[in-house]
Simulated assay, not measured.
Amino acid sequence: MAENSSEMHSPGPIISRREALQATAGAVALAALPLQSAAATSSPAGVSSVMAVSMTVNGRAHTLTVDPRQSILDVLRETLDLPGTKKGCNQGACGACTILVDGKRIVSCLTLASMHDGAEIQTIEGLEKDGELHPLQAAFVEHEGLQCGFCTSGQIMSGLGCIAEGHARSPDEIQFWMSGNICRCGAYPGIVAAVADAAERS
């Protein structure tokens, strides 16, 4: 007489498909942890994780210890506590982080601090002197070249660069050379008027 197969083989514990997937995912995550921590803590032989950089910001000399991957924007905001330079898109597309480096306007979110040892940097905080607004700042107020104000520091710094470059001789020229600075509020007529006004006075 043949024996019942269910008596010969105990079926063992039964788990659901969900439980099986959860157990597999947990095992994979645990197996990956040592690799992730090793990657996070290791660096190529002979490569330092920090470096010394000297720069003059708004007339003040600074010697800083920075991560070689750190942008000037992050150094300004996080190390030097100069939050006037705004972090907008962080991809170089909006112009909110525009500053002047050695007299030339750049988007600081895409610029490594380690590449500008010895640089002369000017930010929005350095424009006001003895309680008096810079003429371009005053022109922005007079011509209402701002609404929410988030982009304004970048607009003003870019406007300074535009004037210094000789690209502020007409409204059309200002619009073209300021096109890298985005104003989501749409205050462009006031911005152009302010730059043109300051250019005439300079």
Results as ranks from 00 to 15, higher is better:
C89R: 11
G92K: 09
M55S: 08
E19L: 08
A187H: 04
E7M: 08
H143C: 02
L146R: 03
Q36K: 05
Q175S: 15
K129Q: 14
D117F: 00
E142W: 02
A113D: 03
V75K: 03
S48T: 12
P68L: 05
R17M: 10
I72F: 06
T79I: 07
L82V: 09
A2Q: 15
L21Y: 14
I121N: 09
L146G: 05
S170N: 11
S16W: 10
S16L: 07
V28L: 15
Q122M: 13
D197M: 03
V53A: 01
S10I: 05
S158I: 09
R77G: 05
C94N: 05
S42V: 11
S170Q: 12
Q147F: 04
L33E: 04
R201P: 00
Q155L: 14
A93C: 07
I99G: 06
L64M: 12
G46M: 07
P11F: 06
M8C: 10
I72K: 02
D102I: 07
A93E: 15
S43P: 02
I15A: 13
D67G: 02
C94E: 03
R69T: 13
P68R: 05
W177T: 08
E128S: 14
A20C: 01
T24R: 14
C162L: 14
V195T: 09
H62R: 09
G166T: 05
L100I: 00
L73K: 06
G154P: 09
M1V: 14
L160G: 09
D117R: 05
P44F: 03
Q122V: 15
I163D: 10
S202V: 02
A199F: 10
P11N: 06
A20D: 09
C94G: 02
I14A: 14
I163V: 14
T85P: 00
C185W: 13
K129Y: 01
V195W: 12
C148K: 12
K86S: 02
C148S: 11
P171W: 12
T65L: 11
V66D: 04
S16F: 08
G59T: 09
G103W: 04
E3Y: 09
G145S: 03
A193P: 00
V57I: 07
R105P: 08
G59F: 10
P189L: 01
P189R: 08
F140I: 03
G131T: 12
C89D: 06
C97P: 01
M55Q: 06
R169L: 01
S202E: 12
G46E: 02
A187C: 05
S42N: 13
E200C: 05
R60I: 13
A40M: 13
N90C: 00
A139P: 12
R201S: 14
E132S: 13
A45L: 14
S49I: 13
S108G: 07
